[in-house]
Design a protein around this nucleic acid. Structure first.
Lengths: 340, 340
DNA sequence: CTTGCATCCTTAAACGTTTAAGCATATTTT
DNA sequence: AAAATATGCTTAAACGTTTAAGGATGCAAG
């Protein structure tokens, strides 16, 4: 049972394929197709259950109506959520999504970009990995539309969707300060990626603004690739020093989860011994015996915006880049304790 | 800067496109291409940074080297993990993955199938929704290769990858019995999907085999679409009756998470007041104050198997269907308490 | 009766590949 | 020397669409 093509319909209707194409793409008016025959063609198409061959159409039009999505890891619920909203929004616009996971690795990300481009995606939505500027500049040189999401490179003129990471971090730390915490630590990824830098900056400036010690000693980092070991070390350092930290601000949900696992292991009581606050929400934070206060990123909004901006770039190539920065919200729960 | 095509290379080298194609697809031998010119062609291709147009290739070959993946919801980490392993395994075989989320809705799933087929995917990996048998049979009638994963329909002759849900559930309940629990409840989705039925059957038969009350009263269901309300009702019913349940077995991770949220809200202590066990692992279960004992599905293995079976079906159309059933493992933690 | 203009439809090229078939030319075999 | 084979390349069709251009017919206007 071969697939039905325009030619089959044309033969059945005794007309040329051109006519069939005009009718089935609703160009009857422009092409002045007779009412009778149009009806007949539609009828036959329905009866044969004609499904247009998207690939042929793409080849002709040079557009695939496909978006390439590169995230760090699709199995991380944060990126899963992003993927989901992008999927939904893309579908609303008759686009489909091909995805790939970069594991925060620039080389992998580069491979992925190439694979996706060979598949003729019309544009890309990317959570760029550290060190991937070069790739992105190449995309720009090739005039491939793309939008960065979650992170971006401040000195690259590219469209991006981000949240106000600086303010978000500041809110988090100020919340801890309001709760009377004195020695506030932070654990972030060891990366130069701008969103993380901004969170660090928010942390440090909030501390300074309130006369807290903002030395380096309370800001720890962990490698994405050695999360577990580095996390344990970081927490041990924060908690074993003479001036033991009484609060930890995690820069992302994956850090928070890994960190809380170890904190549980060590039997540290939240919030009495230690206050916890983090970026990003996830089920795990709800279920923690002491629900974790967090900085919420409006993921749905970000995903939608990314698709919108990308489609604009695709359809209006001279539109110019767009920067969208959305505010975060602090969702207060119990992990920072009461004022003390 | 237009994309470089075979023709551009051919022009530059002063040969026909055919020759270029032969060389760049490594068919020099069969096509008896001269060594000199082959080298020259490769050189030019490299210099022009030629990237083959996958779409044109697909149109010609009738194969897109693309797999369609339909899951219930890509933002659910369980499906995110599946997607990730499928992505990796597909990439190893030079395939890419287009995905869509069905939200357990047969109509949505049908739309998705159509979208993906129009994109000429070579095959599909599907977590079928309830009531989607008809769609699948249509796929069979059209000779579209597909593999079911996670669930399947026992009276449909289609390839599938599943775990032994019956045994998995049985193990879970037997563990509770060994721990001395007397009134073991179960909360499942309200669905006729076979994997859930099997888990229910495992639950019931384990109870019977050990002389426990296996009446209907302790087996509750919740609708996927009204999870929160139904879950609260189910738990209230299990815990408010005269013969209060002393253990709950959740049929999936999403049920467990929703359930534990409410259990936390009600302030019920695990494992003393209530033992908890569930299918599927997720970070949230690790972080719970009392780490949750669960039945592990070997997701990586399942994803790999799904890709392998699908590619076999694509490449050897007369191979016949394949059923793969993998064992689960019980991962014991603290949520079922000590023997009592 | 021509001319012009609608109306309705067909032709054919194009998108970028792949690949069977064919055509020279050179080399070997008989 | 003729025939057979080998070598190295080109031609052209095909995949399923889209769409500009053109052809044929009918009809109204001059």
């Amino acid at each position: 049972m071969k697939k039905v093509s325009l030619k089959d319909i044309a033969t059945a209707a005794g007309v040329s394929t051109a006519l069939v194409s005009y009718v089935l793409t609703n160009k009857e008016k422009e092409a002045r197709v007779g009412e009778e025959i149009a009806k007949k063609i539609r009828e036959i198409a329905r009866k044969l259950n004609y499904q247009p061959n998207h690939i042929a159409r793409s080849l002709k039009s040079g557009r695939s109506f496909t978006i390439g999505l590169i995230v760090a890891d699709i199995s991380n619920p944060f990126f899963g959520h992003i993927a989901r909203t992008i999927e939904d929004e893309a579908k609303r616009n008759n686009y489909t999504v091909i995805f790939g996971s970069s594991d925060e690795n620039a080389a992998k990300s580069g491979d992925l970009v190439n694979v996706l481009l060979n598949r003729q995606v019309d544009g890309l939505i990317i959570t760029p990995a550290e060190g991937s500027e070069q790739q992105l500049r190449q995309l720009q040189a090739q005039n491939i539309p793309f939008v960065l999401i979650d992170r971006f490179f401040p000195d690259m003129a590219a469209s991006y969707i981000t949240v106000d990471n600086y303010q978000g971090a500041k809110k988090a730390v100020e919340h801890l300060i309001r709760k009377g915490r004195q020695r506030i630590g932070m654990i972030a990824y060891k990366t130069t990626l701008h969103h993380i830098s901004e969170r660090k900056r928010g942390y440090q400036e909030a501390l300074q603004a309130h006369g807290h010690d903002a030395g380096r000693s309370l800001l720890k980092t962990a490698r994405y690739s050695h999360l577990k070991e580095d996390m344990q070390l970081a927490i041990d350092q924060l908690l074993n020093s003479r001036h033991r930290a009484d609060a930890i601000f995690f820069a992302t949900n994956s850090l928070a989860i890994e960190g809380l696992k170890y904190i549980n292991e060590r039997g540290i009581r939240i919030p009495d011994e230690l206050a916890i606050i983090t970026f990003d929400e996830t089920d795990a934070l709800d279920l923690f015996y002491c629900p974790v206060t967090f900085v919420r990123q409006p993921i749905a909004e970000m995903g939608k915006a990314a698709v919108r901006v990308l489609l604009e770039q695709i359809n209006q190539p001279h539109k110019g880049i767009e920067h969208i920065c959305i505010d975060t919200t602090l969702v207060v729960r119990k992990s920072c304790g009461k004022r003390r």
